[in-house]
Amino acid sequence: MLIETRNLTKQFGGLTAVKDVDFEIEKGKINAIIGPNGAGKSTFFNLVSGSYIPTSGQVIYRGKDITKLPPNKIAELGVARTFQTTNLFEQATVLDNVIVGHRLRTKYNLLDAVLRTKRYKKEEKKCKDKAMEVLDFVGLTNITDQLAGNITQEEKKRVAFALALATDPEVVFLDEPAAGINSGETEGLAELMKKMVKRGITVCLIEHKMQMIMKLADKIMVLNYGEKIAEGSSEEIMNNQDVIEAYLGGDASA
């Protein structure tokens, strides 16, 4: 077990977006979170990655309480995430976009950067080398010099993966990685997630493409109206009556 949430709850005024959710993200596996639209999936991600502070409950990472840590501190511990909307610097190259990721691990200060000291140059080379390594891993070495604004939607998804990987994470949270791409491209991203796990990176994703999730995930949690209604393998989830009712009774497109 890598990350554990205990009674995790988030309220926005009178709305409870996540309610008393206990979940264990298992190391070295593909963990998935599914549920109808508005079920609280992205809020759950935001709580774990530090974008939101819970109303109550805890987030434990490697036995340490990280509930109130800011996102940059959580990222430094080894937790990376992508977002539903891929926000890249459109006027910068693909390489420059990914270089930003590894700056989290650099050891130079502002003065080094201004004076372009030896330490600055050494650390910048490390960032560039790391960026090239992860771009190779995601299969994008052929477009490193292209502007991010000029590449395809599927390539942008891969750049987002590369950016997360450049932070040297232990676990990566992927928020709807296959949104807006076709079935062939979806298959390619699924293979990339398997490759990440083979490299020792734990994956946790939110996804609406059920066919992909059922084939890919080792473990699935289902949220509905902010509450966990089921947890288990693909087979267990597909045969769970509460899950069937949540999808058929609510927004079945989720």
Rank of each mutant, 00 (worst) to 15 (best):
G38Q: 08
I229W: 02
A166W: 08
P36L: 01
V100W: 04
G35M: 03
I181F: 03
R103A: 06
L104G: 12
D168E: 15
P177N: 06
S234C: 10
D20G: 08
T144F: 07
D112R: 05
F12Y: 07
A166T: 01
I60K: 04
T86I: 15
T152W: 09
A148C: 08
G14T: 13
G14Y: 04
K209N: 10
K107R: 14
G149K: 13
M1Q: 14
T144Y: 00
N72V: 13
Y61N: 12
K209T: 08
R116S: 12
K228A: 15
E207F: 01
I99Q: 03
I151T: 11
G180C: 06
I206N: 10
E227H: 04
T85A: 13
Q211P: 00
N142I: 09
E133S: 14
I244V: 15
V171S: 03
E26H: 07
H102K: 06
L189A: 09
K41E: 06
P54D: 08
G250H: 04
G13S: 10
N240Y: 02
F45Q: 05
L223M: 09
K68E: 13
K157S: 01
M212L: 15
I60F: 13
M221S: 10
K19V: 04
R62C: 06
E123V: 11
A160Y: 01
E170D: 15
